[in-house]
Every structure is written in C-alpha cells, then in structure tokens.
Amino acid sequence: MNNTVQGRTGPASSVSAAASGSAVAVLDVRRMGVSFEDGGKAKEILRDVSFRISAKEFVCIVGPSGAGKTTLVRCLAGLSRPTSGSVLLDGEPVVGPPARLALVAQDYSRSLMPWLRVRDNVRLPLRGKGISAAEQNARVARALGAVGLPGAEELYPRQLSGGMQQRVSIARALAYDPEILIMDEPFASVDAQTRAELEDLIMQLQRASQLSVVLITHDIDESVYLSDRILVLGGRPAGILQEYAIDLGRTRDQLETKALRQFAEYRSEVFRSIQAASAMMRKDDRP
C-alpha cells in the first residue's frame, strides 16, 4: 500500500513562501559550536552552525557519517547544550528539552519502552501534565489512527514489526502536539518498502498540519524527495556547507517525483556536495 498524498494537500504555490524563509522562524540556530573534552584534549565537533527553520517547513539535513549529525540533533532537542552560540525556539533560547518539540529517534527498539504497551508508550509524554485521562486516551487513539495503527493500543512493541514500531514512535510525537518535529535518521533501520511508506506518511502528516519537520538523514534520495530545503552538513569541525531549495511542488509521489529530471538534478548536486564534504573530512583526518 502506498500512502500517496495526491490531491489532499494545498496548492504548490505555498512552497515558495515557506521555503524562502520569509515566514517567522520557528527554530533559529545561531553560530552554534560544540566541542567535547576527550582524554584531556578538546575535540571540536561543530563550528558556526547557523540556519533557520520556518513554520510548516520540511527541512532535511544530510551529511556523511561521522559529520556530527547526532550531536546537532541533541542540541536542537535540548538534550545537550552547545558550547558556543545558541538555539532559539520561538525566540526563546533552548536550555532543556522544549515543550513544543518532539523527537523521533532512529532506533525505535530503544526509544520506545518495550515494557509499556503501545497505549502507554504514546501516553507517557502526556501524563502528569494536567491533561485529563479521557483527553489523553483520545489523543492516543487519534495519533494511532493518523499513523495507520488504529486499535493497536493494547499491544507490546515486540508484537509489532520494525516499521510499525516506528509508526508508534511517530504517533507518540504527534500525540504530544508539537510545532516542530526532529527526526534523527528515522527510517534507517527499516526495509526499503516500509521506508517508502513511512516517508509518504510523514510527508502527508506534515502537509496536513502546522508542523515544521527537521529530518536528519544520510540518504540523498530521501532528502530530495521529502524536503523543501536541504542543508548539507560536513567538514571537520562540521558546519553547514551548502543549502538547496527543493522546488518539486508540495505534492510528491514515490514514482513520479523520483522520475522527474529536476529530481535527478537536485540529487546529483547534493551528491557532489556530500562527496566533496567527505573528501575534505578524509583529508583532515590524516595527520
């Protein structure tokens, strides 16, 4: 089954407004730098990373492995503090995990709690925050419906396939009602068919809501297919090397969009830029 979104979302013209960055920035990263102390000597991971994410925008951050993507995600999600610079969410500096930000991690088997049923996993972030039990359950049911798993409440994660577990963690994010969704290689551990389904699912969910999505990936096709904008992360220490606005319309299709000449052009541009970044990093690694 293919969750195509044809005809369901708004006109393609809205892309330009979102992609141009003229709208209010939801997430604003300013000259962010991160370094760690490793065995007495400082190791700089990120330097001068700056970008802005607007409301309703879908941005992919791509980069070669080891570029510091996970470090970047942790700073955006408020799990780590940058060493220099700042991350602003709605103008407020991020000092801890913000309330209106949800995180979907790569490894669903480790980010869901295997000892909680699906309902309790999705509900966990809602508990103890003044939301009535009835409302919590309603939000769980709605979110599970939205990801195509209606009625899965009573199951344990182990009873679901990998792709379904990742749907549950997306449902957990949706039920949390965020304005920005950070996804760290969310489809890296599922098979190709499931991956395509989940890509379409997340695109459809984003188009139908006010969500901004930042998706970290190393898959170039995926980034071009999904995003309004692509940021290429690379170098040592890593920074944003390139930025591409992807103008493929709001309505996309796994077969048709990927067959477009434009798609191929974006793809090779991003590919070259990542190759250059890798080559640079390999050179820097040599003493």
């Binding site: 999600a77 408020g78 991690a105 980010s111 508990r127």
Partner: peptide, 16 residues
C-alpha cells in the same frame, strides 16, 4: 541511554 533520552526529550515527569 536512548530510552532515557526519549523520556527526557518528551519532558516525562519525574514520577512517571
């Protein structure tokens, strides 16, 4: 650590 992180990212309350 991923499980603790996801609890932290979703601001799960201490009791929970």
């Amino acid at each position: 650590p991923e499980q603790r992180d996801s609890a932290r990212a979703y601001r799960v309350t201490p009791f929970n």
